[in-house]
């Protein structure tokens, strides 16, 4: 059974005003346990709205969200409990830091869950380590950290609730390449270590492609594709039409194909691409 499911999910903003806009339009999704899903789509394609419905922050205008097969908007359902299971890290999460110390801020979520001191302490220390925050930073004010550290502290704040599904909305926005890599590899490690489901929203294909097991492409409030990265990128022209840039290496391989060189069209990591090129060169490099 899928852990998280969306059925016919629709959300419309400002119903009955001139600003009415459907942000998510009849979306069906099935998210399996332990998957690492990348969600891409350009600005305004409905990514953030969809994610906020997944943990019950927004009530769908139409359709349902099922967690373990149970409707989260069912009468009497505990939405707070849902939010502990489906953790959502917002865009620019560092703006939500508020406690005196980093330690207390990371402990905010677990504390709301009603855990005991010992368990909270374990979770705070574990997640701080997972996001690469050194021990001595924990007693500092969150406002004394650097931009990248703040971001990671805020992510740790959600991770510490140990949700079964972790959703991150553009966790790398506004960071330098080094900070981006750091967060992405840490997420990858976290996913491997805990086996929990991770959903990563981004508009950078490059970032996402390397790590995810499945890609969800949104455009104009609708799901355009939901498949493995290789299958999604094989249909690259359609993505480009929607204004989504393919990873550099994929673009190169598509160009090579257009020149009549027989290379696969689903290349999306440099490593995989290099292997193919080397094999091709070994076979009979003369024609290249």
């Amino acid at each position: 059974m899928p852990i998280l499911e969306a059925k016919n999910l629709t959300y419309t903003y400002s119903i009955g005003t001139p600003f009415e806009k459907t942000a998510v339009d009849h979306v069906d999704l099935e998210i399996g346990q332990g998957e690492f899903i990348g969600i891409i789509g350009h600005t305004g394609s409905g990514k953030s709205t969809l994610m906020q419905m997944m943990n019950g922050l927004l009530k769908p205008t139409e359709g349902t969200v099922l967690l373990d097969g149970k409707d989260i908007w069912e009468k009497g359902a505990d939405r707070r409990a849902v939010r502990f299971q489906v953790g959502l890290v917002f865009q620019y999460p560092e703006y939500q830091l508020f406690e005196e110390t980093v330690y207390k801020d990371i402990a905010f979520g677990p504390k709301n869950m009603g855990l005991d001191e010992q368990e909270i302490d374990r979770r705070v220390r574990e997640t701080a380590e997972a996001v690469g925050l050194r021990e001595e930073l924990l007693q500092k004010s969150p406002y004394a950290l650097s931009g990248g550290q703040k971001r990671r502290a805020a992510i740790a704040g959600v991770m510490a609730m140990e949700p079964r599904v972790l959703i991150l909305d553009e966790p790398c926005a506004g960071l330098d390449p080094k900070g981006r890599m750091k967060i992405l590899t840490q997420l990858h490690d976290y996913h491997k270590r805990t086996g929990c489901t991770v959903m990563l929203v981004s508009h950078s294909m490059e970032d996402v492609a390397k790590y995810v097991s499945k890609l969800l492409v949104l455009s104009h409030a609708k799901v355009v594709a939901f498949d493995s990265p290789s299958a999604v990128f094989a249909d690259g022209d359609r993505l480009e039409e929607m204004g989504l840039a393919l990873p550099q290496v994929t673009r190169i391989f598509h160009a090579l194909r257009a020149k009549g060189i027989t290379v696969p069209d689903e290349v999306y990591t440099v490593k995989y691409g290099a292997e193919h090129l080397l094999a091709l060169l070994r076979e009979g490099g003369g024609q290249c």
Binding site: L57, R80, G87, F90, P93, Q96, F108, G109, G157, V158
Partner: peptide, 26 residues
Amino acid sequence: IMSAQKARGADMESGGLIQRVHALVP
């Protein structure tokens, strides 16, 4: 910010007056 704190389990809809004021800090 309210959504973000709610996602971390902040409870703003229940409790007495003092609890609610306290819930505004985050």
